[in-house]
């Protein structure tokens, strides 16, 4: 079977973001890039399909050239082929334009795919949009929050977990299908450094001159949404009283505060 793995290969490590103590603003410079962590769950899910049913896994990412490293890491995990679509005209894409570009790339580089596997969401934009939107552009059925899957003839039996309802549902879905994988549901296998080294130079990079997509459908121009403003969250004023002292006194101080507030 032919599996396409969607991965956002270069997201800022948002936990490394610091606040400038002098200005109180966000320091974005120097924030290291990394693979979207939830996409490693997706990679494990895709590779397990390959382990059990044979075939190949092709990783696909729309990212700046820096995304190459993450794709090599995925090949180190066992992904067979990696495609990076990268072009200045793709910059500023919202999820609709991102999904359009990815869907067109799938049609071009893996027209005979059976399953597209996506991560649940990215850690920088956390929309969980791209999976469903790729399915919509491709005109295929889709399912979110998958925890495992097995092939049953021409369909895929997917178990998925709805955390907020505490339900596990099983769907039988005709292939081709897009499956988005519940974050944290897999134990991603290690990256083999040997295999990662072998992957050097094997990531195929394509620009829009290869894909030939209309400029008005990609990047900022192909995006119905625009970021109108970015600002730091305004924090409500707080009392900010700190107590430091022996535990007995600390407990008494807190109890007094709880009484003031009216819950004791």
């Amino acid at each position: 079977m032919k599996v396409v793995l969607l991965t956002k290969a270069a997201v800022p490590n948002v936990t490394a973001v610091r606040i400038d103590p002098k200005t109180g603003t966000l320091v974005r410079e120097g924030v290291p890039l990394m693979i979207n962590p939830w996409d490693r769950d997706a990679a494990e899910f895709a590779l397990r399909l390959k382990d059990r049913y044979g075939g190949t896994v092709m990783a696909l990412s729309m990212a700046p050239p820096a995304g190459k490293d993450a794709l090599e890491s995925l090949m180190g995990m066992g992904v067979d082929e990696a495609v990076l679509v990268s072009d200045r005209v793709y910059a500023g894409a919202d999820t609709l334009a991102t999904a359009y570009t990815l869907a067109k790339a799938i049609e071009k580089f893996a027209p005979d795919f059976d399953v597209v596997v996506a991560g649940e969401e990215t850690t920088d934009s956390t929309t969980a949009h791209v999976g469903a939107q790729v399915a919509s552009w491709l005109g295929i059925p889709y399912i979110y929050y998958a925890i495992d899957a097995e092939v049953n003839g021409r369909s895929l039996l997917v178990r998925r977990y709805l955390e907020d309802e505490g339900l596990i549902e099983t769907y039988e879905i005709d292939m081709p299908v897009l499956v988005s994988v519940q974050k944290g549901s897999q134990v991603p296998r290690d990256i083999s450094l040997v295999r990662k080294l072998e992957a050097k130079g094997r990531v195929k990079t394509f620009s829009n001159s290869d894909l030939g997509l209309p400029a008005e459908c990609v990047g900022l121009r192909g995006s119905p949404t625009i970021v109108a403003k970015v600002f730091e969250a305004k924090l409500p004023q707080r009392k900010g009283e700190l107590f430091e002292g022996p535990p007995d006194e600390a407990a008494r101080w807190l109890a007094a505060k709880l009484r003031e507030v009216g819950v004791v």
């Binding site: 924090l235 707080r238 009392k239 900010g240 009283e241 700190l242 107590f243 430091e244 002292g245 535990p247 600390a250 101080w253 807190l254 505060k257």
Partner: peptide, 8 residues
């Protein structure tokens, strides 16, 4: 972010 904080 606190109104009341205890270090301990």
């Amino acid at each position: 972010y606190v109104d009341y904080g205890v270090v301990g």
